[in-house]
Write a protein that binds this DNA or RNA. Structure first.
Lengths: 239, 239
DNA sequence: ACGTGTGAAAGATTTCACAGCG
DNA sequence: CGCTGTGAAATCTTTCACACGT
């Protein structure tokens, strides 16, 4: 959002990061309707990771205090975050992990499979492709794209690398894509974003160190690795 | 909310990052003392990237409105962010890019070289190692570490991969290390963090999807890739 | 008794209006 | 005149206290 034009500046914004900020990185966005803080959504995803780890070792119940300790936030915040979406606990008792996981997954929209394409098959792209966490949460990388002729038609992890110019055909033949991951250099990131938006992709995860300009209904989350190091550098200098 | 993130992790925004909070954004970091918002620091790093890009194409001056447009925030915020640290512009005119870059670099502590070690030489580690952006901003990756015997003693990008158990010797022989990048699986991340802290590393950039427990004077910024995708998923579900 | 859920207070960040100065 | 720098207002987020249910 944000816009800004001539003189009169309008109001909009702020969303952060992450990690990202981000947010803190880490910025906020503009939410249509909801009064739910962006940071609540980020924390929900973190709670989910913690709950899944605990469930895997056989824990069955947890209270807001314990979850807060794991997530390194305070227990008021855990309860407030959850209360935006319903009442998932039992007073005097706590939360049942299994059902809380199910609720949080539902809130985050993880109860369906998301089709994801990865654009940019460099080192970072390959790292993302081999990252286990995505598939576990229902993010299915179904297509790889690059613009380098030397990479096109090669296979990575059993997936064919295609030309970015064939994205439209790919969507037509294999079905709609929900999310595009942009792992290309800064100079081509905006072009890739435009291409993805044009074929109907609704969410972008951008690793290029440049803010993308996209239509307002497109969700964009950017991860800038250098920014994160610079933030550390800032705090190191503060003493 | 809009979207866009940026985010270290700890908390961050408009381009946020989940990363932050975000912490960031992921997740973000934690600010000790200062009255300066964490998100201001994140944005400063983003402004820097924009200014450097503009300088590279020959632009010499900019005003808060133009910079705001590039960064996708509003111009009040640009001015406020900068004003926490001094008066860098000329009223009625704007900012001289070259000198503003110098100021922002100084604020972020980039006017000195930072020694960085990378722990975890998997796909992600290799991607980070070949990432150009780090060296450009003064982050010098001077040591690679892993715990896999098959990787130890091999060479990646002309750098020897060492055992994590030799970290202490490395610091003794080659000098203090400022920042450690943790690119290992979740189950060993806390151990690696402890080891890094024990040898005097003051800042951690963590890619493992688990909140680290570290002494209060250690700066930690976490980037959780799955969290970022889940945040996108949440917003996609909201319509 | 005990921990959740929540309205209200406190705190933090962003937006705004405009004074200030080249 | 134009754009920066900033106190004050608006907005948003977190913390808190405590009523509520079991």
């Amino acid at each position: 959002m944000a816009k800004q034009k001539g003189r009169p500046e309008k109001k909009v914004h702020q969303n952060r990061n992450v990690s990202a900020r981000i947010s803190p990185a880490g910025e906020k966005g503009k939410s249509l309707r909801s009064a739910i803080p962006y940071s609540t959504v980020v924390r929900l995803a973190q709670y989910l990771r913690i709950l899944e780890r605990l469930e895997a070792v056989g824990t069955t119940k947890i209270n807001s205090n314990e979850l807060a300790k794991e997530a390194k936030v305070n227990s008021f915040l855990v309860r407030k975050d959850l209360s935006y979406f319903g009442e998932f606990g039992v007073r005097g008792v706590g939360y049942e992990i299994k059902s809380l996981i199910r609720e949080v997954q539902r809130i985050l929209g993880l109860n369906r499979e998301r089709r994801v394409v990865l654009v940019g098959i460099g080192h970072l792209g390959r790292a993302l492709l081999s990252y286990k966490g995505f598939a576990e949460e229902g993010f299915h990388i179904c297509g790889l794209f690059d613009s380098d002729p030397a990479k096109i038609r090669t296979t990575v992890n059993d997936l064919l690398v295609r030309s970015v110019f064939t994205l439209e055909d790919f969507v037509e033949e294999s079905g709609a894509v929900d999310i595009g991951i942009i792992a290309v250099p800064a100079f081509s990131a905006q072009f890739v974003a435009n291409t993805l938006v044009a074929v109907g992709v609704k969410g972008l995860l951008n690793f290029a160190p440049i803010p993308l300009t996209v239509p307002p209904h497109i969700i964009t989350v950017s991860v800038d690795l250098t920014t994160n190091l610079e933030v550390i550098s800032y705090f190191l200098s503060q003493r």
